[in-house]
């Protein structure tokens, strides 16, 4: 099923829409593996756990809004040759959660989507998600570039900037996004300075005098001892 058909089906009715929505999502095991669901095992206090559960049990966006967010997600970050799209990374679910968790997002997102639909109806006589991709892009082109946007599109610019922020942050904090970025950390290691190739590229070098004071990683497991003057002897 292609993207536009999926979205059109979502609007048919809540039952059918719900089925299609879940059918198009990765299955639960897959999601757990990708870390997209929270099992509460991230060091929560009892009060925080209760808060998370409460927020997770709430609904804010209606079906049309959910569908609109999904369309925007993949317009903002479609799949690349090597990485999945924002929808593939579970960004719509993240946006749904964060709007319930940080409630100041609610009005700008809800109102912004109405603004977008108004614009789409004015220009193409139908809701944004029912427009063709070309039509959707024509609308986005008027609000995606703050420096070029017409003053009368300012509200749309503000909305789209917020949506782009949430899509980008949702994506790059997902497993898929972190892999796409190439972040190498969050793993035990032994930091031993900037790689030589990088130093060379930047025309930089460690000063000998400075380097002489730094930790010799060969000796990191040796229990420190000092002489009476505070000089490390090992």
């Amino acid at each position: 099923m292609d993207r536009r058909d999926t979205i059109k089906s979502m609007l048919v009715g809540s039952i059918a829409g719900g089925l299609i929505l879940s059918a198009c999502q990765p299955d639960a095991d897959e999601k757990k593996k990708s870390g997209e669901t929270s099992d509460g095992l991230y060091g929560r206090t009892e009060k925080e756990k209760a808060h998370d559960l409460k927020v997770m049990g709430e609904t804010f966006f209606n079906e049309h809004e959910v569908a609109t967010i999904a369309v925007l997600c993949d317009l903002i970050l479609p799949a690349s040759a090597s990485a999945g799209s924002a929808v593939d990374a579970g960004v719509p679910e993240f946006i749904s959660f964060i709007a319930r968790d940080i409630q100041s997002h609610q009005l700008p997102l809800r109102g912004g989507m109405m603004w977008l639909d108004h614009e789409a109806t004015k220009r193409f006589t139908q809701a944004f998600i029912l427009c063709s991709i070309d039509q959707q892009k024509q609308i986005l082109d008027t609000i995606a570039y703050p420096e070029d946007a017409a003053p009368e599109s300012a509200q749309g610019v503000k909305f789209f900037t917020l949506m782009r922020n949430l899509v980008l942050t949702g994506y790059y904090t997902s497993r898929m996004g972190i892999d796409d970025l190439g972040y190498q950390g969050n793993t035990p290691n032994t930091w031993d300075g900037v790689p030589d190739t990088v130093l060379a590229k930047h025309g930089l070098a460690y000063e000998e005098e400075w380097l002489a004071k730094c930790i010799d990683q060969e000796k990191r497991a040796v229990v420190a001892e000092w002489d009476a003057e505070g000089n490390l002897v090992n």
Binding site: G35, S38, L41, G43, H51, D101, I102, G170
Partner: peptide, 15 residues
């Protein structure tokens, strides 16, 4: 050593 996606709010400061 938790990843951002282990928090549903991706580490946001709302809590």
């Amino acid at each position: 050593m938790k990843w951002p996606y282990e928090s549903p709010r991706r580490g946001a400061g709302s809590q």
